[in-house]
Simulated assay, not measured.
Amino acid sequence: MDKLEEYSIEKDKEGKIKVDKNNLKNICKTAIENEFDRLSSLTAVDYKDYMEVVYHLGSYEHKEVLVVKVKVDKEDPKVPTVSDIWSYANWYEREVWEMFGIDFKDNSDLRKLLLPEEIDGNPLRKEYPIGGRE
């Protein structure tokens, strides 16, 4: 993964890499070139003050997983889509959009996947009331 060094990447104590959302697509394409050929999962975490979108990239060849984290501002939760890199990422992005309210820029199919249309809000955000809304 030597090519990744050109992007300012920060590794956390578990070895997961944290990247700026502006570098996300380049990181994913570089990971594919380095045989991390599949997106195993895409989810989000709400840490109260900020959120992170978490991508698990897998390598069949090396039997490894690369975890990529992108910090997201809660006031303007936007991240570039990776559905143009992995078409099936659309489903993951729809789920994260619905549950956390994170907008995936240039994803043309952000619509509800899990919840009924009449449910408002993003149930996996910290500020969402326990037990739901009336």
Score class of each variant (00 low, 15 high):
P123W: 07
P77F: 01
P129T: 02
G101T: 02
Y47I: 13
P123T: 04
K105N: 11
P123I: 07
P123L: 07
V19R: 08
E118W: 13
A31M: 07
D84V: 05
N90C: 09
L57H: 00
V53T: 02
N22L: 14
K78D: 05
C28K: 09
Y92S: 01
M51H: 02
E127T: 00
D49T: 12
E14F: 14
P77N: 01
S40F: 13
K13W: 11
K25C: 10
S41K: 10
I85G: 04
D2H: 10
I32S: 07
A31S: 13
L114F: 08
E75I: 07
F36L: 06
E14L: 13
D12S: 04
D12W: 11
N90W: 09
S87P: 15
W86H: 01
P116A: 06
E98I: 06
D20G: 02
M51E: 00
N23P: 06
D46L: 09
P123S: 06
K13R: 15
K69H: 06
P116Y: 01
Y7E: 00
S41E: 12
D76Y: 08
E35N: 15
H56E: 11
V96S: 03
D46N: 00
L113H: 08
Y50K: 08
E5G: 10
M51W: 01
N122K: 12
V96G: 02
L115H: 03
V65A: 10
D2S: 11
H62M: 15
L110D: 12
M1Q: 05
L113K: 14
Y47G: 08
K13C: 06
F36W: 04
V79N: 04
Y128Q: 04
K48M: 14
G121M: 09
S41C: 15
V54H: 01
V65S: 11
E117S: 10
L4S: 01
Y50W: 10
L115M: 08
V96P: 00
K48L: 15
K16I: 03
E118R: 10
Y92D: 09
K11V: 05
E98D: 07
E52W: 04
L110W: 11
A89Q: 03
L114R: 15
E75T: 05
I27Q: 03
L114K: 14
N22H: 12
E98R: 05
V96R: 02
L39A: 02
L114S: 05
K13E: 03
G132S: 09
K13G: 04
V53N: 00
E5N: 14
N122T: 05
D12F: 09
R133K: 15
K71E: 10
R133Y: 13
A31F: 05
